[in-house]
């Protein structure tokens, strides 16, 4: 571990990373994933020392090989039952906090159900596209387009939900002031705990970028449409800059795998 984290060809290294992503997005157990990736890493190191190519080990199709490994590993439902409520709560805090700036919370039943469905679709979409991207040797452009579509997906679904909500009448849930305050406190506690746990500001930065521009712009003399445009622009520019910074700092520590 100290000295031997070495001499592995770029191709093998990439395969191991892709395998890890593939297994992760197939919902496998963290410990078992780490074990098989480490075992294969050991095999690759030995094989490369003896001049064998990666094809000699995994065969012609990386995807087939990943599938074969994946098929023998059980899905870790227990872990996912822990993660999914976490993700749903996270998504809800997202929506709730930007709405808090507009006053007390009211949602139609359709909206509440719709939020959960959208999160579900997005999770499934993420799993499918990550498996696809990691198992197939795609060029950067194709990889980027797939992830871009994935990123746009929730936005499109939210737009659809807003449209649907204006045409279909469902019972409306009013949370009132007390309800709103309680929900707000829960959301803040969750966000703080989440940020401490993951040691990352990502969620808080995203929420701030989504809700703060509009909030501050509402104090300016700009017209409604001008406000909306500037707000959206600031949000997207902010997210782009944040992602750029993240990818820069990530690249430097990317090499070490599990």
């Amino acid at each position: 571990m100290i000295k031997q984290k070495v001499e592995l060809s770029e191709k093998s290294r990439k395969f191991l990373e892709d395998l890890h992503v593939y297994l992760f997005s197939s919902g496998k157990n963290e410990k078992e994933m780490k074990e098989i990736v480490e075992e294969l890493e050991d095999h690759f190191v030995e094989a490369e020392k003896n001049g064998k190519s990666i094809e000699h080990i995994i065969g012609q199709s990386p995807k087939n090989y990943m599938d074969e490994i994946s098929a023998e590993m059980p899905v870790d439902y227990k872990a996912w039952f822990k993660y999914i409520p976490l993700i749903i709560t996270g998504a809800f805090s997202f929506i709730i906090i930007s709405d808090l700036f507009k006053g007390t919370l009211t949602y139609s039943l359709l909206e509440i159900v719709g939020f959960i469905v959208i999160v579900g679709i997005f999770l499934e979409g993420t799993s499918i596209s990550f498996r696809y991207v990691s198992a197939n040797d795609l060029n950067r452009k194709k990889e980027f387009s797939i992830l871009f579509i994935l990123g746009m997906l929730p936005m499109i679904l939210f737009l659809a939900l807003i449209l649907l909500n204006s045409t279909i009448e469902t019972p409306i849930v009013h949370f009132g002031i007390t309800g709103t305050v309680i929900i707000a406190i829960i959301a803040f506690i969750f966000l703080t705990a989440f940020s401490i746990w993951t040691r990352s500001w990502v969620l808080i930065i995203f929420i701030a970028l989504l809700s703060l521009p509009n909030f501050f712009l509402s104090f300016t003399a700009l017209t409604e449409s001008a406000r909306l445009m500037t707000g959206t622009l600031i949000t997207f520019a902010g997210i782009a800059i944040y992602l750029l910074i993240i990818s820069r700092t990530d690249k430097s520590k990317r090499i070490k795998l599990p």
């Binding site: 098989i36 075992e39 294969l40 095999h43 094989a47 064998k52 094809e55 000699h56 080990i57 995994i58 065969g59 090989y65 074969e68 490994i69 098929a71 023998e72 590993m73």
Partner: peptide, 11 residues
């Protein structure tokens, strides 16, 4: 291919 053994070992 040598890697074939790992899915077998897993099973």
């Amino acid at each position: 291919s040598e890697g074939t053994i790992y899915p077998l070992l897993l099973r």
